[in-house]
């Protein structure tokens, strides 16, 4: 079984049964094989700014594919604890975890340098994408009382795609990696669009869904909330602001925010 097949099996999806998709899949398999043979593996850097490390832990929860992924499919060229390299090298993709602290010169410099050297910068996890719970920071704490202002990286550099989540699930990370390796831009389009979603809050449901006459009482937001800040009352989301970390997941998963119909039909074989 090829690696891609195993990844698909792991993700619980079958390939679309029609001929076109099969041809595509064949082509992408060959592509992956070719890439592997030529050893022109995508060069990936992992940049850790102000976050809790949960995002990279979620990435590493892809036990089934991680060893193969890291050994045969990608080259990790930069990353604290992952690579013994203190100079930011040229890379194809930079995964940036954590928001950036405006009072931390080192973080600012690293982010700028990464933007220069990386073909693609991905805001990986909600801290990087929306600021997430670091949005609540007000400084005045040890060990760096001056560290007060934390913003999503898109406030400072151009971001090519975002994978929100607190943390993003192991599955979305694996699916994104597979899509990247296959050059499946259709699958990645929502991540590209989400790069612009930097001011997130549970109240987006009220502002952008209920206020816009779009809520249909499905409950997807309440299920998606990773901090149990949402409940459904009379068919509408009710936010407990004290629990909201501003990760944006409720609005991202809402079927009325953006709607990937073609991808869903492909995944279902419809």
């Amino acid at each position: 079984m090829s690696l891609i097949d195993r990844i698909k099996q792991f993700l619980g999806f079958k390939a679309k049964p029609d001929k076109e998709a099969k041809a595509d899949e064949g082509a992408s398999k060959k592509e992956v094989k070719k890439v592997a043979e030529e050893k022109a593996k995508p060069r990936i850097g992992y940049i850790h700014l102000s976050g809790c490390t949960g995002d990279v832990i979620s990435l590493s929860e892809n036990y089934d594919i991680l060893a193969e992924l890291l050994t045969n499919m990608v080259d990790i060229v930069y990353g604290q604890t992952l690579v013994d390299n203190w100079e930011v090298p040229e890379m194809d993709l930079a995964l940036v975890e954590g928001s950036v602290c405006l009072q931390d010169e080192h973080s600012l410099q690293e982010l700028m340098e990464v933007r220069e050297k990386a073909a693609m910068v991905c805001a990986f996890g909600s801290c990087s994408a929306t600021g997430c719970f670091t949005r609540y920071s007000r400084g005045g704490q040890q060990a760096q009382p001056a560290h007060e202002s934390f913003v999503p990286i898109a406030d400072l550099v151009k971001v090519d795609c975002a994978i929100p989540g607190c943390p993003p699930t192991p599955e979305i990370i694996a699916k994104t990696v597979v899509a990247l390796i296959n050059g499946d831009m259709d699958y990645l389009q929502p991540m590209i669009d989400l790069a612009g979603y930097t001011e997130a809050c549970g109240c987006d449901l009220q502002l952008k869904v209920v206020n816009q006459a779009l809520c249909i009482a499905c409950g997807t937001c309440a299920m998606s909330c990773q901090t149990r800040a949402l409940d459904m009352t009379n068919g509408r989301p009710e936010l407990n602001e004290d629990r909201c970390v501003k990760c944006g997941i409720c609005y991202v998963q809402c079927p009325r925010s953006w709607w990937p119909e073609e991808q869903i039909k492909k995944d279902l074989g419809l």
């Binding site: 994978i163 929100p164 989540g165 607190c166 993003p168 699930t169 192991p170 599955e171 979305i172 699916k175 929502p190 499905c218 409950g219 997807t220 299920m223 998606s224 909330c225 990773q226 990760c247 997941i249 991202v252 998963q253 809402c254 079927p255 709607w259 990937p260 991808q263 869903i264 995944d267 279902l268």
Partner: peptide, 15 residues
């Protein structure tokens, strides 16, 4: 639609 979107793009809903 909410369920299928979560299945195709499970950003924040694990396993």
């Amino acid at each position: 639609m909410g369920i299928r979107k979560t299945q195709s793009y499970p950003f924040g809903v694990r396993f």
